[in-house]
Amino acid sequence: MAGLNVSVVSAEQRVWEGSASQVIARTVDGEIGILRGHQPMLAILAEGEIRVTTDGGEKITVDAAGGFLSVDHDNVTIVAGTASIAAAA
């Protein structure tokens, strides 16, 4: 079973793209988790982390500020004003 098709981009670059089992992002209305089969939606991003769990179980953290998140038919598109992969702890 295929997962979510995720694309994270900023004004300057494509930050991360791939297949994921889960995406968690901070919106102006609070934190939201996206799984396969999520209802279509559009949300405004707040400054903070976007956490992606790939289909292989890898955890990707993206620091992002501004922009929006769109979900439609298991496609998650995140367009941020600024975004970059967070350094590993």
Results as ranks from 00 to 15, higher is better:
Met1Asp: 06
Met1Gln: 10
Gly3Val: 11
Gly3Ser: 10
Gly3Glu: 09
Leu4Ala: 03
Leu4Gln: 00
Asn5Glu: 06
Val6Tyr: 06
Val6His: 02
Val6Lys: 03
Ser7Arg: 12
Ser7Asp: 10
Ser7Lys: 13
Ser7Thr: 09
Val8Glu: 00
Val8Ser: 01
Val9Arg: 15
Val9Trp: 15
Ser10Ile: 07
Gln13Met: 09
Arg14Val: 08
Val15Gln: 06
Val15Glu: 01
Trp16Thr: 01
Trp16Ser: 00
Trp16Leu: 03
Trp16Asp: 01
Glu17Ser: 02
Glu17Ile: 07
Gly18Pro: 01
Ala20Ser: 10
Ser21His: 08
Val23Glu: 00
Ile24Val: 13
Ala25Gln: 04
Ala25Pro: 01
Arg26Leu: 09
Arg26Val: 10
Val28Pro: 09
Val28Phe: 15
Asp29Thr: 08
Gly30Phe: 08
Gly30Tyr: 06
Gly30Thr: 02
Glu31Phe: 07
Ile32Ala: 00
Gly33Cys: 03
Gly33Met: 01
Ile34Glu: 03
Ile34Lys: 05
Ile34Gln: 03
Ile34Arg: 05
Leu35Tyr: 03
Arg36Pro: 05
Arg36Tyr: 13
Gly37Ile: 13
Gln39Lys: 12
Pro40Glu: 01
Pro40Tyr: 04
Pro40Cys: 02
Leu42Cys: 04
Leu42Gln: 02
Ala43Pro: 10
Ala43Gln: 11
Ile44Cys: 15
Glu47Met: 02
Glu47Ala: 04
Glu47Leu: 02
Gly48Trp: 15
Glu49Ser: 05
Ile50Pro: 05
Ile50Gly: 05
Ile50Arg: 07
Val52Leu: 05
Val52Tyr: 04
Val52Thr: 03
Thr53Asn: 05
Thr53Ile: 08
Thr53Tyr: 04
Thr54Glu: 00
Thr54Asp: 00
Asp55Arg: 08
Asp55Pro: 03
Gly56Gln: 09
Gly56Thr: 05
Gly56Ala: 11
Gly57Arg: 07
Gly57Glu: 05
Glu58His: 02
Lys59Ile: 14
Lys59Asp: 12
Ile60Asp: 01
Thr61Glu: 12
Val62Asn: 08
Val62Leu: 11
Val62Lys: 09
Val62Trp: 14
Asp63Gly: 08
Asp63Ser: 11
Ala64Val: 04
Gly66His: 11
Gly66Met: 14
Gly66Leu: 11
Gly66Ser: 11
Leu69Tyr: 03
Ser70Gly: 03
Ser70Trp: 06
Asp74Lys: 09
Asn75Ile: 00
Asn75Asp: 00
Asn75Tyr: 03
Thr77Lys: 12
Ile78Gly: 03
Val79Leu: 14
Val79Asn: 10
Val79Lys: 10
Ala80Ile: 07
Ala80Asp: 07
Gly81Phe: 15
Thr82Glu: 15
Ala83Met: 06
Ala83Gln: 05
Ser84Asn: 09
Ile85Cys: 06
Ile85Arg: 08
Ile85His: 13
Ile85Tyr: 13
Ala86Gln: 07
Ala87Asn: 10
Ala88Cys: 10
Ala89Pro: 12
Ala89Arg: 15
